[in-house]
Design a protein around this nucleic acid. Structure first.
Lengths: 214, 214
DNA sequence: TGACTCTACTGCAAAGTGCAGTATAAGGTG
DNA sequence: CACCTTATACTGCACTTTGCAGTAGAGTCA
């Protein structure tokens, strides 16, 4: 029996709905475009198209490249139907995995310098991801989108990614300013500032304050 | 040979650094406090403390509860040393998994209603998580923190969580307003609004505009 | 033309998840 | 107070996913 279809299977199926690809092209495309919405290992991405074939949602034909032959995957009618059906189902809640935040929660076991460098790493990662997304999307203005008819989707998605990375960078700045007032990482408990933070939470006010739009 | 220590192992080890717990208490505590920084299955959380014992980072002693006996895990000196060493290492980049964003990227395979309801689900999930975090943290003002000396860490972490959930809700509103101008999900490409979005990305301006702080 | 390096994968062990199953404990009912 | 139900506290197992090492052809250059 073929392994069951997962969300990752539908992600690959949706790529096949755009055009036929080889397994390698699929992994490249998935890594580039899905990295920030559905991050999966290259290894998995290679296996998924085979599973789609087992389920009859895609077919392969061999295309000769040089001396060897490469499998090109094409979506079937059944595949398109399965994809449309999936689009009507309800998505799982978003989940964030952030090791730097773990370091904050357990900061008492290290120095303030350890904590600050963990947060700096997170901010640098966010800045790098911001640059990548901003650069690629700016290119779309010069017609560099591989599928121009899909630009409206990519651009709207990009707004989320950039707001998220921006939030991470701004929050790290805020957190570092707060931590700078700590004599140490442990045993502070309810400081005046902590009380102020908790009050702003109770009043549902943003601690980062208003965005400036430059 | 004992399986190697993962980031999840250190997360559990850090909980043991607070106080000794039974495996069940550890899973409860980890699910509650780590859910939004390091989301892991209950099943894994049950296995980790055993691994810590295999590595000599924790010990167990049996505590009789009713007619049965329950293992209480305690961190060792080696465990504290390992934890401190881990605190100095560099955290992995943050990763967000959001199925609703997948639906946006591949929205062409469904109706605008499908897309909007996927985004609504995401906003509802974010609102729910916001409520949970806000409620728990407001309680800390009335001395409801189980480890009062750790309040400064929980509160700072909470600011990130709330800003994140707030961003998700605000962005969904923005995205829905944009999608409302689409006649359909597919083939729109570079609309005037898409061009405006891409220009604001190029200029590095927030599309959500300034936060209001109520 | 052999020696590298890059592209394009596959196999495998180990990490992590989901779910069904189980045994004790606790709480209510006639 | 025996009986039934529900909640607590797990474990086993099959399956999913990851990381990494290995490999075979393709391009590149002295």
């Amino acid at each position: 029996m073929a392994p069951r279809l997962t969300t990752s299977s539908y992600a690959i199926l949706a790529l096949l709905a755009i055009q036929p690809w080889t397994a390698y092209e699929l992994t490249q495309q998935a890594t580039r475009s899905l990295r920030f919405a559905w991050p999966k290992s290259e290894r998995l991405l290679y296996s998924e198209p085979k599973k789609l074939v087992d389920h009859g949602l895609a077919t392969t034909h061999d295309k000769p490249i040089g001396k060897r032959t490469r499998a090109v995957y094409t979506i079937t009618g059944e595949g398109r139907a399965a994809l449309q059906a999936w689009m009507t189902t309800s998505p799982e809640p978003p989940a964030l995995e952030a090791e730097a935040l773990l370091r904050l929660l357990f900061a008492e076991n290290g120095s303030t310098d350890d904590l600050i460098s963990a947060l700096d790493t997170m901010a640098r990662d966010a800045a790098e991801m911001y640059e990548q997304v901003a650069t690629i999307n700016s290119g779309y203005l010069d017609g560099r989108h591989p599928f121009p008819e899909r630009t409206h989707l990519s651009a709207l998605f990009a707004t989320f990614q950039l707001e998220l990375f921006d939030l991470m960078m701004k929050w790290v700045e805020y957190a570092k300013a707060e931590i700078a007032t700590w004599p140490d990482t442990e045993g502070l408990g309810m400081t005046d500032r902590t009380e102020a933070i908790l009050n702003s939470i109770k009043e549902r006010q943003s601690v980062l304050g208003p965005h400036e739009t430059p």
